[in-house]
């Protein structure tokens, strides 16, 4: 899905535009736990989250995530926007709840990451 379609589907507002609207978003994922993002995030994906602290941007950087979508009408604090600007990450906000934002994107054809497995027996 192209970034501009994603914005349309979510009725979203761009806080910080670091990618062209034709940027291809290969997949989406949603989490409020950053370790989950680090564990399951895939490069280039869009991350939907209700967290707005700068660590969300750091986490995206480490996981190779291009776009962060803040749900539930959250506003990004200045330090988060500043870090995103520095690291070239696109910030978007939508008024939909996490559930509905995910539902709309999935319905519109943005795939998720499939089945993931935590291996418990590695120790």
């Amino acid at each position: 899905m192209k970034l501009k379609e994603l914005i349309e589907v979510l009725d979203a507002e761009i806080i910080l535009d670091n990618h062209g609207s034709d940027e291809e978003i290969p997949a989406g994922g949603a989490a409020d736990l950053m370790s989950d993002v680090l564990a399951f995030g895939s490069p280039g994906m869009a991350l939907l989250t209700g967290l707005t602290n700068p660590q969300v941007v750091r986490t995206a950087e480490m996981a190779g995530i291009n776009a962060i979508i803040l749900v539930r009408d959250k506003k990004a604090p200045p330090e988060t926007v500043e870090l995103a600007r520095e690291l070239g990450i696109t910030l978007i906000r939508t008024s939909y709840t996490m559930y509905e934002a995910c539902g709309r994107l999935y319905h519109a054809g943005l795939p998720g990451l499939g089945v993931v497995k935590i291996r418990n027996d590695t120790w």
Binding site: D32, S35, D36, L51, N53, Q55, V56, T122
Partner: peptide, 15 residues
Amino acid sequence: DMGFGAGMGLANIKR
């Protein structure tokens, strides 16, 4: 509250 401390850190590192 800030999205950390889910107990996945070391599991992630190991992986």
